[in-house]
Amino acid sequence: MQTLIFRTAAPYLTGLMLMFSVFVLLRGHNEPGGGFTGGLIAASAFAIHGIAFGVPAVRRALYFHPMAISGFGLFAAAAAGLPSLLFGVPFLTGLWMSPAFFGMSIDLSTVIVFDIGVYLVVVGSFTSIALALEDREHD
């Protein structure tokens, strides 16, 4: 699949898809989207990159091992539940704060941390699966 057109288009495609995935993730709370969808989009992006440039290139670009990303995501999601314990509410209860930021109010919450955790788990796991299958060195 290492055709010229594909190899030329792939980096832009990957970059666009990654940006789109983050966008989908962050708007997920109010519009369609969210961690699962965003994560899958990002995983597809890496899969495409891997098909175009080979698995080592993706691994280099990712810097971390995909499973490590996945593990960090799970950790973040679980940790997002912990602050609720401090406030004496059940585990994983969403907590919100809206600090003013350059005159703009931004909603920050543990729920967003949780959703980012979901995103990272999905990205990490599926990228890892896809890369493992693309990697033909073992055959």
């Binding site: 969210g34 699962f36 599926f126």
Partner: peptide, 9 residues
């Protein structure tokens, strides 16, 4: 939504 992801896994 969760079922889709799980069944994909």
């Amino acid at each position: 939504l969760t079922a889709i992801v799980i069944s994909f896994c």
